[in-house]
Amino acid sequence: MKKPDVKVVLLGDMNVGKTSLLHRYMERKFKDTVSTVGGAFYLKQWGPYNISIWDTAGREQFHGLGSMYCRGAAAIILTYDVTSWQSLGELEERFLSLTDTANHDCIYALVGNKVDLTDAKAQLSQDSDGLSEDRSTAAAGDEEERTELQAAPASPVSLSGSVLRKQVTLEDAVALYGRIMRYKGLDETSKLPADKMCFETSAKTGYNVDALFETLFDLVLPSILRKRNEDKESPTVDLEEVGNKRSRSSCC
């Protein structure tokens, strides 16, 4: 198993679409999910680095595990559902405190998912790259994917028929981001700007998904470099080497 250089964690209430976001980003498709049990993780190769991305379970039952997942995290994606005011509230009430175990310089992103349900602009995929990927996999002969793909971006009409009321605006998210920064004790100068760190995404259409992950990965690079340096300064003990030394000294 490759050892990850850095950890990114997705937090958020159940059903907001954390697993779906990861599927979209990693597998370039939107597929049926079941509510996550415990947690899962993916390894993403980002240039020369390995980034582990943890998908956590939003269900109350697994809440206790959150702190452990966040321990040592370099970035945390706080996810809510734009059609659910409560999902935003939960972030502040339930999930924020879990991030106490993250790195002191951890980066926070606030992500409102399912924006395809409320905003026309997110209904058509922007994620051309994702589309072409899908096409190529479909061409490789997977019938199921092909039909699913056609259903997704090709029917904006049926989607626009069911536009839901947007319960959480971007402004609400920006305000929460401010409160999170205050909670973390970060002042205006040391925090990243809210407009850069608040995203609205759709795992379903792929809207803004790549942008979210790629922005974060770029931001955690310094953290990776720092960690590599630390590892260099306090390298792990090489047992064989120690053994060799000992045997050498004992034979004298």
């Binding site: 049990v37 415990g38 947690g39 899962a40 993780f41 452990m68 321990r71 040592g72």
Partner: peptide, 11 residues
């Protein structure tokens, strides 16, 4: 030992 999970849990 550091209190970090390096593998995903099993159910």
């Amino acid at each position: 030992a550091e209190g970090v999970s390096q593998r995903a849990p099993v159910s």
